[in-house]
Amino acid sequence: MFGLKTDWSLEMPPAYFTLESYEGGAARWCPGCGDFAVLTAVQKICRDEQLPPEKVVAVSGIGCSSRFPHYMKTYGFHGLHGRALPVACGVKSRRPDLKIWVATGDGDCCSIGAGHWVHAIRYNMDMTVMLFDNAVYGLTKNQTSPTTPPGRKTNTHPRGAWLPALNPLTATLGFSNVSFVAQTVDWNPVHLHATLAAAYRHPGTSFVRILQRCPTYSDDMFAEVQKDSNRLLLLEHERGVPAASGLQRMYAKRMEHDPLDMAQARALAEQQDTLPIGVLFADPSRPRYDEYTAQGLEMTAEDRLNALESELDRFAV
C-alpha cells in the first residue's frame, strides 16, 4: 500500500551518537585543569567516528588524569599506579573489536610505570596513549616528577629539582618498534583535537604527549611558550596534522615534516627552545602484536577439544 515496504522497520538507521553519548559523570578536576580539554577532544573524536560506547574502553593508572575513564560514558578501567599499559594490552589482546584510549600521567607513565612504557611501545598494539604531562605530581600534592624542569621548587625538592628532566619524546622515539609519536598542548583545542584524531586513526600504539597545565601546582609551567607563540613549532603534513588555516594563523613558526622521517623527528624532539607540536613520527607499517595475540579467535570448542586430545596422546602409555 502506498508503495511502502512492509519491512521498513528493519531498516532503521543505526543509532546516531552525540557528544552526550560519551559524557559520563561531571568531571571533578580542579577548575581550569587542562584535562577537561583532552576529555572533550576524545569525546568529539568518538562522536565523529560514531564509535558505539560499548565498544570503547578507557584505561588508566592512578593520578589526576587517570580519573579520565570515570568521565566517559563508555567502559573503563581505572586500575593501579603505573599499570595502565599492561591492562590495556590485555584488554586489546583478544578483543580486536574494542577501541582503547589510555590516560596516563608523567608520574604514572614515565616513573612508576616506565618499564611498561618501553614494552607497550614495542608491542605496538592498536590503541591511543595520551600522556598528560603537567611536569608535577598533582594528586599527591606537588612532588617532583620525571619531567619537572631542574630548579623548579616542589615539596620533595624545596630547593629546586636537581636532575635534568626526562624527555618523553626522545625516549619514546628511541624505543624499538615505535610507530607513532606526537605532541600537542591543552590550551589549543583545535590542535589537540587534530592531533588526537590523527593518533586515533593510526593503526598501532599512538603515543601523544600533551603539555598540560595544572592550575594548582604548575599553572605557570608552560607560561613562556603560551605567551610567545614563536616558542612552538607547528609541524604540518598530510600524513600527520594537516595544514589548516586556523592553526596557521596562530603559529608563525611552521614546518612541513614527513612523519616517516625518524632522523628529523628525533632532532625535533631534542629541541628545547622551540617545542614541536604535531606528529613527529608515524609509520603504519610497523608490526603489531595485537595481530599476533588475536590469532585463533575463530576456533570452535570442538577444534580445541580435538587438539587437546592429540596433546594428551603425547603422554599416553
Binding site: R83, P86, V87, V91, R94, G115, H116
Partner: peptide, 18 residues
C-alpha cells in the same frame, strides 16, 4: 615484560571477558 605486567595483562584480558 615483568611479573606485574603478566598479571595486569591477564586481568585486562579477563575484564574484557576472556
Amino acid at each position: 615484560e615483568d611479573e606485574i605486567a603478566a598479571v595486569g595483562f591477564a586481568i585486562g584480558a579477563s575484564y574484557a571477558g576472556k
